[in-house]
């Protein structure tokens, strides 16, 4: 009887020890996560506060993280007084138009690559070539594109950016959409054909509705990439009429006296679409950013 009792208490102790260990281990993960999260978001938060602080608060030392009187003067300054409103509109127009063009042209090409067997193993070769154009350092094509645009007098126009961004986004669209098309079973299109639909009709009525989520994700990626793009915009547009938001922000930085408030206000607005998209896209992001190599 005694012997049994000691045995059960020993296992009780071991039981509670392991429960404790499990608790610590699990929460240790959260303990690591939280700082990582803060570390990722704190600088962005800091910038937001700068955009809302008066100049006095901005230069205060020690810097107030949470307690300060907010003001919208910098936002007014940036978007009404100065030309940031125009930069914003330019960014939006360029992003949307180039994404639209890239989607149309790219989806068609992606469909052909996914469904048709081309001779000379062109399917594979074309795909690899398209992938490689994505790998070019931007500066390599930026310099000649500047000269080319200058030659056709398209410098400092929105059109030049739209054209370049379409070309910029195209490889990505083709790569992503090809994956989505390949995931779709051939059966469905064949059934549509046998049912009497034309190839185009099958594409519109059967294929497109089914790749719609993939299409939406690709579109959002392209919008983000176009919205964020800096180098080509910097090289191709230097006038207020044609500058995009990133170029406008950078312009303030290289100036004599840096207006931090204006700059952070503009930057804070610039990231709004990003934050929205990030929440929506987070499921597809890993797949998109790793060029489909890893399915998140």
């Amino acid at each position: 009887m005694n012997h049994k009792d000691t045995k059960s208490t020993k296992s009780d102790k071991q039981g509670s020890l392991s429960v404790l260990r499990v608790f610590v281990v699990n929460n240790f993960r959260y303990a690591l996560l939280l700082p990582a999260l803060l570390f990722a978001l704190a600088p962005v938060y800091w910038m937001l506060t700068i955009s809302l602080k008066t100049e006095v608060d901005q230069f205060a030392s020690p810097p107030p993280w949470f307690v300060f009187t907010p003001t919208l003067e910098h936002y007014y300054d940036a978007f009404v007084t100065r030309a940031f409103g125009q930069y914003l509109i330019t960014s939006a127009i360029v992003a949307v138009t180039s994404t639209g063009c890239a989607l149309i042209i790219g989806t068609m090409a992606a469909y052909a690559l996914a469904r048709f067997q081309l001779p000379w193993s062109l399917n594979r070769r074309l795909s690899l070539w398209i992938l490689s154009t994505r790998m070019f350092p931007a500066i390599v094509t930026a310099v000649p594109l500047f000269l080319m645009m200058r030659d056709v007098r398209l410098l400092n126009t929105r059109a030049s950016l739209i054209i370049v961004y379409t070309a910029f986004n195209l490889p990505f669209v083709i790569w992503m959409m090809r994956g989505f098309f390949a995931d779709l079973p051939r059966d469905l299109e064949e059934a549509a054909l046998v049912d009497g639909d034309s190839r185009l009709g099958a594409l519109v009525r059967v294929v497109l509705p089914l790749v719609a989520p993939g299409l939406a994700a690709t579109a959002m990626f392209c919008l983000i990439i176009s919205w964020n793009e800096f180098l080509f915009a910097l090289v191709l547009t230097q006038t207020d009429a044609a500058m995009t938001l990133p170029v406008g922000i950078a312009g303030r930085v290289t100036q004599y006296e840096i207006k931090w408030g204006v700059m952070s206000a503009a930057a804070s607005v610039a990231i709004v679409p990003i934050l929205v998209f990030a929440l929506v896209l987070q499921k597809y992001l890993v797949r998109g950013l790793s060029m489909g190599a890893v399915k998140g």
């Binding site: 990582a36 999260l37 990722a40 978001l41 962005v44 910038m47 983000i224 919205w227 964020n228 800096f230 938001l245 990133p246 170029v247 922000i249 950078a250 930057a267 610039a270 990231i271 990003i274 934050l275 998209f277 990030a278 987070q282 992001l285 950013l289």
Partner: peptide
Amino acid sequence: LLVPMMLPTVV
């Protein structure tokens, strides 16, 4: 966690 890498590089 995605926020940092989705920000415009300028920002």
